[in-house]
Write a protein that binds this DNA or RNA. Structure first.
Length: 574
DNA sequence: GCCGTTTTCGGCCCGACTGTTTTCAGTCG
C-alpha cells in the first residue's frame, strides 16, 4: 500500500479536471490531468519527495507547477485540498457516476442534468427507460439505447476490483501478518490466488499461536474503514478504498484442506466433493475423511492425492476439465515465471511512455531477463505521439547505441504499429522489415461490424513483416467491451501464418483473456506476453500476463517469451 | 495551470469516429 497518497492525489486531480470542465473552464482541466497522470506513474512515494525536497521537489515532477505543488503540499499536511472541497459543491453529488457510462462525457452529462435534473446513474436509467432522453435536442433513440447499454455495462463491473490493483494490497497485508511473531503461516487464498482478472474481496488464511493478537492487529490497521465482524476464527473488514478483506484463522493441521476450500472456485470445490463421495470419502474444509478417520488435510497435495488426483494449480481450478485430466495424471505443465527469458511490448518516451530506452532496458535486465523488445507506437495515433518512418529509423539507431553499452542483454527493435481500417499497417514495409519484431494493433474503428473487423485483421495478417497481433480483442475491463471479431478465424490464420497472439498484461486489458488463451493454445497458436509498460513501474504487470497464460492452460512451449534471444530471432525471421 | 533552443506570454498533440447533423459537437485515445 505504499504510494497510496500518489493514487489519492491523482484521483483528486482527475476529479478537479472533470469539475472544471463541467464549469467550462478552459485549459486547466488539461493541466490537472497531465499532473494526475504523471503522479500516477511516479516511481517514488510523493510523501517522501515532499519530506525530502519540499515544494521544490514537487515542482520537478513533470506537469506540476507552483499551483498544483501547493495543493499537493496542502493535501499531505492537512489531508484535504480546500479548492477541491469548494469545487465539489458546484456539481451534483453523484455526477462522476454518469461519466463512467461509455460515450457519455461531461458536456452531454451536463445537458442531461440541466434539462432533466439527472444527477445519478439511477436517474439516468429511469429517464432512458421512460424515453425522456430521446426527446431532447441532440439526443435520439440511438443515444438512449447506448446509454442503457452503457449503464448495464457499468453495473456489470458490480463492485469487482482489478487483480492488478488488489494484488499489491493483498501482498502488503500478507507481509505485515507474516512479520507478527505469533503467526506460523499466512497465505492469500480466494480468487486472488487463482489470479482471476477481477476480484470481489480478499481472503487471507492464517495459522497462529495467538489468534486474538492477530485478529486485533488485523482489525486495527490504519487503512481499515469499518470492522464488519471480529471473532476467534473469522474477521472481516472494509478498507478505505471499499475493498472487503476476510481473515480466517485455521489450525495448522487443517491448513491444506482449508486452503483448498477457501481458494475455490466454488464450482471446482463442488466437483471435488462429488468426486470424494463417489470414492466413499468426504471432503470438507477440515480435511478428507474416510468414515470418521481423517486421511488428509495438512497440505493441498495430500488432499488432491487422497482423492486420486494430481495436484491442481490454483489458476486451473475453475472446473473447466482440470479435475478429469488430474484423475488421468495428464494435466499440462503450466508455464512458470522462471521459464520467461524476455519482456516484449515496452513503450518509451519516444512515444507515450515515461522512461528512456536505456532506463527500460536496465530495469528489465535488473529483473533478471535476457532481452526486451521496445515497441513504441508506430503510425498516425497522434495522441500517443506515434513514430513515423523517419523517427522510427532514428530510434533504431538510438537502440543500437544502447545495445552496444549493455552486457549480456539484448534490446530488440520493434514497433506497435496501427492496423488501419483497410487492413494495411500504418508504416511502410520498407521500414518494418528493418525491425526485429512488429506488433500490429487495432486502435480505431472499434464499432465496425464483426465481418469488417475480421476482414481487416485477416488482411493485416497477410503482411509478411507482422509477427504479433497486439491486445487482440481491444477490451478494457469495466471500460470497454471487446470489439466484434470472429476469433476462431483469427486463430486459424494466426496458426497458418505463424503469427503470435499477445496477452497484453496491463491490468485493465489482460487481452487475450484466460478463456481466449485456452482456445488459442488448443489451436496451437503461439502466445506472446507483452507488458504494454509505459513506465518502469509498469513492468510488474508482466506477472499478470503470465498468470493469464497459466489460466489459459499455456505451457512453456506455447509462449514465445520462453525462447532465448537467438531462438526468438529465429522464430521472428520469416 | 503549465511550460519554454520559436515564447516568461500565449500557446496548449489532433484526427477518427459517432450520432447527429447538412456542416457539426462531443467523445475517445
Amino acid at each position: 500500500m505504499d504510494k497510496m497518497k500518489n493514487e489519492e492525489l491523482a484521483k483528486i486531480f482527475y476529479a478537479i479536471a472533470d469539475i472544471l470542465e463541467f464549469k467550462n473552464v478552459q485549459w486547466k482541466p488539461r493541466a490537472y490531468r497531465t499532473a494526475a497522470r504523471s503522479i500516477e506513474s511516479l516511481s517514488k512515494d510523493i510523501e517522501d519527495i515532499y519530506k525530502e525536497e519540499g515544494i521544490k521537489g514537487l515542482k520537478e515532477i513533470s506537469g506540476v507547477g507552483e499551483g498544483i505543488a501547493k495543493k499537493i503540499a496542502e493535501f499531505l499536511e492537512t489531508g484535504k485540498i480546500q479548492e477541491y472541497e469548494r469545487l465539489k459543491k458546484k456539481v451534483p453529488k453523484h455526477f462522476e457516476e454518469l461519466l463512467k457510462v461509455p460515450g457519455l462525457g461531461i458536456k452531454r452529462a451536463k445537458i442531461l442534468h440541466e434539462k432533466l435534473h439527472i444527477a445519478s446513474l439511477k436517474d439516468l436509467e429511469k429517464a432512458a427507460q421512460e424515453h425522456k432522453i430521446s426527446k431532447l435536442e441532440s439526443f435520439r433513440e440511438k443515444s438512449e439505447e447506448n446509454i442503457l447499454k452503457g449503464i448495464s455495462f457499468v453495473k456489470g463491473s458490480g463492485g469487482r476490483m482489478l487483480l492488478g490493483n488488489a494484488l499489491p494490497i493483498a501482498t502488503e497485508i500478507e507481509e505485515r501478518l507474516k512479520s507478527l511473531k505469533e503467526v506460523q503461516k499466512v497465505i492469500v487464498a480466494g480468487s486472488i490466488r487463482r489470479r482471476k482478472e477481477t476480484i470481489r474481496d480478499i481472503d487471507i488464511l492464517v495459522s497462529a499461536k495467538n489468534a486474538e493478537r492477530v485478529t486485533d492487529f488485523f482489525t486495527s490497521m490504519k487503512e481499515v474503514n469499518r470492522v464488519l465482524g471480529k471473532g476467534p476464527t473469522k474477521s472481516s473488514i472494509i478498507l478505505k478504498n471499499n475493498l472487503q478483506v476476510d481473515l480466517r484463522i485455521i489450525p495448522l493441521e487443517d491448513y491444506g484442506a482449508a486452503l483448498q476450500y477457501f481458494t475455490g472456485s466454488k464450482e471446482h470445490s463442488v466437483h471435488l466433493r462429488k468426486l470424494a463421495l463417489k470414492k466413499h470419502l468426504k471432503l470438507s474444509e477440515y480435511g478428507v475423511f474416510k468414515g470418521k478417520k481423517k486421511i488428509a488435510g495438512k497440505n493441498e497435495e495430500e488432499v488432491y492425492n487422497a482423492l486420486g488426483l494430481q495436484y491442481i494449480e490454483p489458476e486451473l481450478r475453475e472446473d473447466k476439465g482440470e479435475i478429469e485430466l488430474a484423475s488421468q495424471k495428464r494435466l499440462p505443465q503450466l508455464v512458470l515465471e522462471k521459464d520467461i527469458k524476455g519482456i516484449l511490448h515496452v513503450h518509451t518516451s519516444w512515444s507515450d511512455g515515461i522512461n528512456s530506452i536505456e532506463e527500460m532496458a536496465e530495469t528489465v535486465k535488473g529483473l533478471g531477463y535476457q532481452y526486451v523488445a521496445i515497441c513504441d507506437h508506430g503510425g498516425n495515433l497522434k495522441i500517443a505521439n506515434s513514430l513515423d518512418e523517419k523517427r522510427l529509423l532514428k530510434q533504431m539507431k538510438a537502440i543500437d547505441l544502447v545495445n552496444k553499452k549493455m552486457k549480456d542483454f539484448s534490446i530488440l527493435k520493434g514497433s506497435e504499429v496501427d492496423i488501419l481500417k483497410d487492413g494495411n499497417l500504418a508504416l511502410k514495409n520498407s521500414v518494418l522489415k528493418e525491425l526485429d519484431i512488429v506488433i500490429g494493433s487495432v486502435h480505431s474503428g472499434f464499432k465496425s461490424s464483426e465481418k469488417e473487423m475480421t476482414k481487416r485483421i485477416l488482411k493485416a495478417f497477410d503482411n509478411p513483416y507482422l509477427h504479433v497481433f497486439g491486445h487482440p480483442t481491444g477490451r478494457m475491463i469495466h471500460k470497454r467491451e471487446p470489439y466484434s471479431v470472429q476469433l476462431s478465424k483469427v486463430f486459424e490464420k494466426a496458426k497458418e501464418r505463424n503469427i503470435a497472439l499477445e496477452i497484453d498484461s496491463y491490468p485493465d486489458r489482460l487481452d487475450l483473456s484466460d478463456a481466449n488463451v485456452k482456445d488459442a493454445v488448443n489451436k496451437k497458436v503461439k502466445i506472446a506476453i507483452g507488458t504494454d509498460a509505459h513506465a518502469k513501474e509498469h513492468l510488474r504487470f508482466f506477472s499478470l500476463g503470465v498468470s493469464t497464460a497459466r489460466r489459459g492452460w499455456a505451457t512453456k512451449k506455447d509462449v514465445i517469451n520462453c525462447f532465448n534471444v537467438n531462438e526468438l530471432k529465429k522464430f521472428l525471421k520469416r
